[in-house]
Amino acid sequence: MRVLLWHVHGSWTTAFVQGTHEYLVPVTPDRGEDGRGRARTWDWPASVREVTPAQLDEEEVDIVVLQRPHELALAARWLGRRPGVDVPAVFLEHNTPTGDVPCARHPLADQRAIPIVHVTGFNELIWDCGSARTAVVEHGVVDPGERYTGEIPRAAVVVNEPLRRGRSVGTDLVQRLAHTQPLDVFGMAVEGLATPRHGEDEPGIRGYDDLPQARLHEELARRRVYLHTTRWTSLGLALVEAMTLGMPVVAVASTAAPLAVPPEAGVLTCRLDGLADGVRHFLRDPEAARFAGKAARAHALEHFGLTRFLRAWDHLLHDTTSRS
């Protein structure tokens, strides 16, 4: 099957393109948001092929995976075919709703031509999709291997653009916890959070901007514990990847996190002091951290394994094309 999709979410796409299909990814001269092309910091197979907007008009596309509302018009213009009318399509919703939650209407609510695919059951429950067909395909990750050493007695946090995204990703929680806990923050535009560098086990924030995925996994696995501060998101793939690495987890118990992290894998809490206590516990007890990390990895492999993820997507893609 020949699948058209935009490079929007690098970690999710990395898992998706491990399937058996051919994947067409638009590329533009500026490699902007609508034409990033192949990933540069993730490992994608040769089955992912860059195509320019001019080339798309001549491609035989079997299905379009839409991820942003404006891609409906973009696909119609570049393909010369309307998604859901002239070519089968699904809409992958990565995000939790914003605005009037829980009454927020999905942009594709009530239409029947394009199914809306959610990445968590929580999202399907919270978005108002009206009479639109919906499905849930939980995240999958490429197994990076059990790399955990926990040799650095600091907590790792992964978040992109923490200053812009603010409370939704728990930037304020990171800043408050850093008064008593040593935190290493990884992602894009995180240097603005950094405080003066301290010793390995002293409180404060150290920032590490946008590392390639393989290097990120290596660095995460060296930290003693993974801290997930996000209040309002679907389910951070970095959280799942950290569990797969064998890291213990301390997480804000919101959205889909309570179902993704079993009790034996770490600490889930809605209290700031609970987050601090959880981080402190694992920093002080390496054996407890290692034990929880092994439970986290076992759970992640069972529930977020690539085989289950790709099988679910194959079924969905084939079902959608067969209805057209």
Rank of each mutant, 00 (worst) to 15 (best):
A295G: 13
P212F: 08
L72D: 01
P263S: 04
A155R: 02
L56A: 03
P144V: 07
G80E: 13
R224C: 07
V252F: 03
C129R: 06
D34L: 14
E191P: 01
A113Q: 09
L268F: 01
R290N: 02
R222Q: 14
R222A: 14
T269I: 09
I114P: 01
R31S: 14
D210R: 14
R38S: 03
P115C: 04
V158C: 12
P286A: 09
G32E: 06
I114D: 01
H303I: 10
E146S: 10
A104P: 11
F282G: 13
P97C: 14
V65W: 00
L301E: 08
F304K: 05
Q213M: 12
T321L: 00
A292M: 09
G278I: 04
G37A: 11
R231I: 12
R133G: 08
V117K: 00
N123K: 13
Q18H: 15
L108E: 01
Q111S: 09
D143F: 03
D210E: 13
L227E: 07
P83C: 03
V279L: 09
R290M: 08
T41R: 15
T230H: 11
T229S: 09
L268G: 10
G130H: 07
P286C: 04
S131N: 13
T321P: 00
T134W: 09
G140K: 01
L316M: 09
L259C: 09
G80T: 14
T149M: 02
E124L: 10
G35F: 06
A253P: 01
T149R: 05
E161F: 07
G32R: 08
G145S: 12
F91H: 01
V174T: 15
E264M: 12
Y208N: 11
A276W: 07
V141Y: 03
P212K: 15
H299N: 10
I116Q: 11
W12R: 10
R165P: 09
V119C: 11
P263F: 11
H118Y: 13
V101I: 14
A132R: 04
A253H: 03
V249N: 02
V136E: 00
R224K: 10
L301P: 06
V159W: 02
D172K: 15
G246F: 03
E124N: 15
S168E: 14
G192H: 05
D128S: 14
E22F: 06
M243R: 12
L216S: 05
R297P: 00
V25E: 04
G187Y: 04
D201T: 12
T96Q: 13
Q181L: 15
T229H: 03
T171N: 13
G278E: 07
G274V: 06
D34Q: 10
A312L: 03
R223W: 05
H315A: 04
G305C: 02
E219P: 01
R77V: 03
G150I: 02
G150K: 10
R311A: 15
E287H: 14
R215C: 12
L79H: 10
E264N: 11
E33G: 14
L237H: 09
